[in-house]
Amino acid sequence: MTSATLSPALAPARRLGVAAGLRHTFTLAWRSLVQIKHNPMELLDLSIQPVMFVLLFTYVFGPAIAGSSGEYLTFMLPGIMVQNALFATMTTGFGLNNDLTKGVFDRLRALPIARWAPLAGRILADTVKQAWSIALLLGVGSILGFRVGNGVLGVVGAFALLLAFTLAASWISVLVGVLVSEPDKVQIFGFMVIFPLTFTSNIFVPTDRMPGWLQNWVEVNPVTVVADALRGLLVGGPVAGPVLQTLLWGAGIAVIFAPLAVRGLRRRV
């Protein structure tokens, strides 16, 4: 085969630049977000469940746990933001597994695009969805009486910290998405792990109200750590310690799970 059969305009480039890779990432993120337009259920999933949780916990459990709904909302809202964010990370693994099993991923890999763009595009789109959920929870919380204690800076900080943590946690979701045979199993994993993990933290019930043996776990549970950091940023109280711990947890999760997920993906395709 000689270059004579290729028209000069089509002579293929040997490599891709980072700018091109970012462009591919944005295009693929667009693809994941435009899906919402055709599947409004996904937006409802993203919105109704967290709002329902806030309402139920505030009015059903609030008076029993904290004495009043208002006080409980202040305590619980930062925590429920963490729980919701963790559940939402499962979207990444679900979507990835869907692409892998349906063949979309192979279609993309056969295109001359950056190797990392399909995954990066999905994660970017899911981060946008996360930001939407966080804003929604804060908005609904405000309507119900949640008051921000640290001003705009606290809100921006809470947003950034939670997004950073979910970005790290989404590598666990990617790993699950790569390992399981069908998308629904990602959801099942999410429920099996995230439910107990988030309920055995201090996001709904203060640590000292739990049995002694459980308190030890609750204190080291990373969900507790992230919830404390968000409380500090949004409501008030210690900030530096929990924020630092959250960042360390995030870094640790990413360092362990990102390589595993990438290796798993390479093996799968």
Binding site: P12, R15, V34, H38, K102, V104, D106, R107, L111, P112
Partner: peptide, 24 residues
């Protein structure tokens, strides 16, 4: 990367996105 610029692939496993429209 150069090969990918020359080829098209259609198969049961190289699929389009079902949730998007044909045009998308």
């Amino acid at each position: 990367h150069r090969v990918r610029q020359l080829i098209g692939l259609t198969g049961q496993y190289a699929s389009v996105d079902e949730t998007l429209t044909g045009a998308e």
